[in-house]
Amino acid sequence: MKPILECSRLTKKYGDFFALSDLSLTLERGQIIGLLGPNGSGKTTLIKLANGLLTPTDGHILINGMTPCPKTKQIVSYLPDCSFINEHMRVQDILSYYTDFFSNFSTERASAMLDALEIDRRSRLSSLSKGTKEKVQLALVMSRDADLYILDEPIGGVDPAARDFILKTILTNYREDAAVLISTHLIADIENVLDRVLFLRNGQLALNATVDDIRTEYGKSVDALFREVFKC
């Protein structure tokens, strides 16, 4: 089986600034991967490149052996770090939208999650609180039977109770043969669910190791190692 994500000498430049520089890495299925690094390290750039939202300056990125295209978009479920749905839409309309466009979207699973969150489907997205909006968006993203889930800061703007819900949602909704790539600053909150971590620094890979290896080799938690590596 082809790796779910593969980068080779991937570079993205904005003017003279290298957001990503010569990045090469391979991610296999069946794991939850933490994409970690300080602000401006290139996490979101890598995520956008994987989703075809940016054009690489050099090198290439492959999803299941293909450059980002409609076929890869069918197997990648992406949660951006901002509100990405037309806020005038009602929750029920958003469900119809996902059902129409994504053949792997499970309306039943999404409905069950929305019911658990007690979200009225007739509500417009604009009338919901920031945290509730993020939950709705996560519910939609995790209701797809995707091969790769890419979640950019999924727990950034919500309270600790909502974080627990989000992490539970991620853990209970992804398939064993799928991979989840999570970008976050809140390492301590998600450390326990991660299998592997990628540390990015100045657009380059600083570390690519399993969480178990980190604990054995460094005798530290991922959070403690991150603080050490990226000490200001």
């Binding site: 951006p80 901002c82 509100s83 990405f84």
Partner: peptide, 13 residues
């Protein structure tokens, strides 16, 4: 705009 994050990730060319 922000909606582009969803539009461009739909399985459409």
């Amino acid at each position: 705009g922000k909606e582009g994050y969803l539009t461009w990730t739909l399985p459409a060319s």
